[in-house]
Simulated assay, not measured.
Amino acid sequence: MNGGKIMKGLFSFDGPLYKFCVLVYETFMLNLLWFIGSLPIVTIGVSTSALYYVYGKKVRENSYNIYSDFIKGYKENFKQALPIGAVITIILSFSIYNIFKLNKMGSAYLWLQGFQLFIIFQILLISVFIFPLIARINMKLIDILKNSLILAYKHIVISATSVALLIALILFTIYKPSFGLFFVSFYALVSTYFIEKVLKRYIKIQT
């Protein structure tokens, strides 16, 4: 009898197996939606903000639909996320290109490589809060950048941990390319748990 109850609970809609399958499905589908939304390259920021829009609702335990909410977040945040995301993408791409180019020029340019790495780290650090803020609050671009910078350094442990997680997942994806099917959305989900703990200190009304 006990064994039957355990098996029934395991496979029920409230059971851990069902919840795990739903999590895997949502992570895969949101990763796919993010990839499709990012195809023009300059819209990577828009897709990322839409991803945080969905996961923000999930973490706050609000009702959500991965498809309709992703599209809603994509449309509503387009004007703000597009320019910021495009600039971030260009800066990161240019810095990474410079690192590889400088690496071929010898040890005399190690300090320039270090400077490029510093720029990349700063951009990633601030970006931890940029897109969740876009997904959560309607603010001017300058205010988004200013508040993201303040939050990134005021909560440096969380922002640095999020950057470290991103780097670790990138390295893991290089080792296991199949994880690329889940990579972006998995990172967004985990980082949202950290970020929401910070944002709820400053946002009174949970939406």
Rank of each mutant, 00 (worst) to 15 (best):
L149G: 06
L102F: 14
F186W: 05
T161S: 15
K58M: 02
K19S: 12
M7A: 15
A168G: 04
P177G: 01
L133S: 02
I36C: 03
F35P: 01
F28T: 05
I205G: 02
Y25P: 04
W111T: 13
K79H: 12
C21W: 08
G180M: 06
F70D: 05
G106H: 12
G85T: 04
F179D: 00
K79T: 04
F179G: 01
L10K: 03
V54A: 00
I96L: 13
N103Y: 14
R60V: 00
E196M: 06
G9Q: 13
K58E: 06
W34A: 07
W34P: 02
G9I: 01
K200V: 12
L151T: 10
M105A: 10
I205T: 11
L181W: 12
I6G: 02
L125I: 04
I144N: 03
Y175W: 14
I120V: 12
K200D: 03
F78R: 05
A168C: 10
Q116Y: 15
I203C: 09
I137E: 14
L117T: 04
A50V: 01
V163R: 07
G37S: 02
Y52W: 06
Q80R: 09
S159Q: 05
L199G: 09
E61V: 01
L165F: 15
F131Y: 07
L149Q: 11
Q113V: 11
I195E: 05
I6D: 00
V87E: 02
N31I: 01
I144T: 07
K200F: 09
L23M: 03
G15D: 03
G45S: 14
V46M: 00
I134F: 02
Y74N: 01
